[in-house]
């Protein structure tokens, strides 16, 4: 017969039915005979169910991102991700305006 140590070591596999049929039978035989392990198995399963429910927030509503953090994220995005700085971008727009006339004429030829 399996020992308590062996049965408890396989509890996760027992729940997922990952054991071979004979192993399943041996585990069930031990659990039928050992009150302690049967209680451990019940409380182990309750633990897994409780963990799965722990972060489901029924009454508390959704988490809001603090305004300061939103501002920080947007500022960081503007600083790190803009290809051109606002000053350079302005220069590009200016130069495009100057070049637009000749460029348009070239395209329409």
């Amino acid at each position: 017969m399996l020992t308590c140590r062996e049965v408890i070591a396989r509890l996760a596999d027992l729940s997922c039915r990952n054991l071979a049929p004979e192993e399943m039978r041996e585990n069930k035989r031990h659990l039928a005979a050992c009150r302690s392990c049967a209680a451990y198995r019940r409380t182990y399963r309750a633990t897994v169910d409780l963990a799965r429910e722990a972060y489901r927030a029924p009454e508390s509503g959704r988490t809001e991102l603090p305004e300061a953090l939103i501002g920080g994220i947007l500022a960081a995005a503007r600083t790190r991700l803009s290809v051109l700085s606002p000053r350079t971008l302005h220069l590009v727009h200016l130069l495009s305006g100057i070049a637009a006339g000749p460029l348009l004429a070239f395209c329409l030829r």
């Binding site: 020992t3 140590r5 408890i8 302690s36 451990y40």
Partner: peptide, 9 residues
Amino acid sequence: DGHQVRHPT
């Protein structure tokens, strides 16, 4: 012998 130290659970 493989039995739980804490008995019964």
